[in-house]
């Protein structure tokens, strides 16, 4: 899967999980940029992404993310 096909559904997931219909993901976005992005909503986000893209992320992959750009790259690599 490439970036362009990942971003629209990922946007929808972010909007849903953080309950903000105006939210648009960007590469340099990090947790402090988004209201309500704590360790709990992080888990909600991971589970929603796994379900949407039919992938399974390892602990190290999740821990290794430093911003949303990394997340988009990771999903693009793993999702078919």
């Amino acid at each position: 899967m490439n970036r362009d096909t990942v971003i629209p559904p990922l946007n929808a997931i972010f909007q849903d999980v953080f309950d903000d219909p105006s939210l648009e993901v960007s590469d340099d976005m990090t947790a402090p940029d988004v209201e309500g992005w704590d360790s709990l909503s992080h888990v909600n986000l991971i589970v929603a992404v796994e379900k949407e893209f039919k992938i399974r992320l390892t602990t190290a992959e999740v821990r290794g993310l430093s911003n949303v750009g990394d997340f988009i790259a990771l999903i693009s690599r793993k999702a078919t």
């Binding site: 360790s39 709990l40 992080h42 888990v43 909600n44 991971i46 589970v47 379900k51 992320l57 390892t58 602990t59 999740v62």
Partner: peptide, 13 residues
Amino acid sequence: RLWAFSKAFCHLD
């Protein structure tokens, strides 16, 4: 994994 990240009781599903 979810237990390690946030002490989730079980898989959220």
